[in-house]
Amino acid sequence: MNKPKVNKDLKLPTNFDELMIGGGNGVGVLATVNSGFRTFHPVFDYNKCVRCMFCWIYCPEGCIDKTTVDPESGKIMLEVDMDYCKGCGVCANECPTKCISMVKDGDDDE
């Protein structure tokens, strides 16, 4: 999975010298995950997936990953970063082959 990770080592400033002036900060600092937003999560049926990438481009979170390739078939295996998927369901709604189902968190076998 090629997605930014939550910064587990993030240290909050403990004095004025450590606090950047003016509300400044670095870039790409992820303090917390977003899984708490979620009730349902997407599950892919790779047999039906045609790798059209519409789910990947529409995902408002950008949390669908397209870098994993199945070594046997050579096909892209779309994966979802469950730290940042909010379960909006846009991917499932837009999938032209309906290969994505929204499953309630905790209800699947994983």
Binding site: G22, G23, G24, V29
Partner: peptide
């Protein structure tokens, strides 16, 4: 850098003290 970001009640007072 990120500049002029939002700071909430947890850091805003420190921004002002600075």
């Amino acid at each position: 850098l990120t500049m002029a970001a939002t700071t909430g009640p947890d850091f805003h007072t420190e921004n002002r003290a600075q």
